[in-house]
Nucleic acid binder design. Sequence first.
DNA 1: GTGAAGGGCCAC
DNA 2: AAACGTGGCCCTTCAC
Length: 591
Amino acid sequence: MEIYFQLVRDAEGLKTACEELSNARFLGFDVETTDLDPYKGDLRLVQLSDGANTKVIDLKAFGGGGSLAADPSLAPLRELLASNAQTKIAHNAKFDTKWVRHHLGTEVGGVYDTYLASILISAGEGERRHGLADVVQYFLGRTLDKSEQVSDWGVDELSHSQVEYAAKDAAIMPEVREKLEERISADGLTEVLRLENECVMPIAEMELNGFYLDRERWQEQLDRVRVLQKKAGDELQDMLAAGVAQASLFGRTEINLDSQAQVTDALLNLGVPMPNTTRAWELQPLAEQYPVVAKLLEYRSVAKAAQSFGDNILEFIEPKTGRIHADFRQIGAPTGRFSCSSPNLQQIPHEAEYRRCFRAPDGRKLVIADYSQIELRILADFSEDKQFIEAFESGQDFHSATAAQVFGIAADDVTPDQRSFAKRLNFGVVYGIGASRFASMTGLTLAEAENTLRKYFATYPRMDDWLRTQARNIITERQTRTKSGRLAKFNFDENDRSSVGAAQRYAKNMPIQGTSADILKRALRLLHDDLRGTSGKLVNIVHDEIIVECDAAESEMISEKLGSAMLRAGRDFVKRVPIKVDAHVADDWTK
DNA sequence: GTGAAGGGCCAC
DNA sequence: AAACGTGGCCCTTCAC
């Protein structure tokens, strides 16, 4: 396919090019860079195209040897990119917007992400890939050559082939969007795609902002844990060696404590009746009788801490900023939840020794806000159960309220045991728990567990109805949705009981977990707009929690804004149940 | 050497 | 022996 494109290398040409494109409603948008990381590489090209007319802007010709962000001749480009009047269509727009934000110093307005659109359409089904070439092949039936993508974009003179490749990637985007829109519209995904598109810029900024990690605090904690690991490891080696006859002749026989095969062998030699797996919840009952098992659990715990939360995370500190810039996948799960990696800031241990290492730099504060029991409120809203909703409206401790209703007693008479029961029930139902699992979790007999579940569902009959309806409908419809319309499709073998069961549990959970993700994404967009012009910077999100860093003097004001944005977002999707947000200002990430 | 699979465990 | 949902990371083991 031949296309018309123009290489822009001077201020006058840029001004004309931007004017020519400013009447278009939709612009294909792409960038080429010398690295994947905006803190490490240079932004070489920005490509914009209305489909027929494509401009390839060579930024090596701008900046005057200084920073691109300070070059006034780039103003027309910044204005065009920032404008909401032209939708910028990009594939994985988080990447392009990060480079533009960091190197050109402007937000991108009107983002349309064909990568996110393609993922929403696939609805968690099948193995379809979502790279641009894959999406073009699938929706347009054309083959896109991506071989220049990894070419050297730092050379002085770009080859014709490179510039043409760059132009084509942008030029095809308006057409890709049109094809995607047919499916987005037909599948009822317009609202959820808007939600996703509006979330791209906030996430791009969050990744650029990074989260400050106090290297010294982390190192001190790691040193403490390593001492514990060494001690527990030595003691465990000694205890395991007792089962090996010749150990005393040659000194201790070292085994690999991280090898569950070797550890299982050693424990069997000591006469420990080993279960099929050596997971903590299996070994726990044996720990009292066999001190060596208790020692193994102790070792596992500190080894996990030292290995998963050790030096590795320090290596992610970006030298230029001194901060952690993790990678967030906006649709990390089919439910719509984010996932996070490199490193995963969503799995930092809850213990204060770890959380306190993530702190506000001097003169700054962290504003930390999370939704209170958001998933249960969403379930209450879906089910419209009167009693369930009343438990929230009463404003009292929710698990106590549940206990009072389930056990038919006054809220003041609820014992800690009864509250704990209610809490585990409340969380269990969100995941589609069964009686046998609940029994093993609580120590009840199967009959007692069944009885308790029966009482629980009798207390909340409409919730029972909703969960049963979800389980029933998935068999015939094979799909379900969140409040925003986010779609999840299932394929399962209806003759396979476990496969059906898994689908039914997912059908109960997905709309709840996914609506929670919808709400978070709405909140991020509202917050992004509300933080403009303040010192507040989004630094982390964990499913139902948002962390903003700001100047100490503005912390109370930012706290108000954060809480307000989260409340409004919650109310957008949950109409029948009050939403509660807990917000506080702190020096570090502890509660 | 590299990568996939499986076990295990951290978060919500 | 997880029939309680969603992820990512570390380690060992094993195939290529």
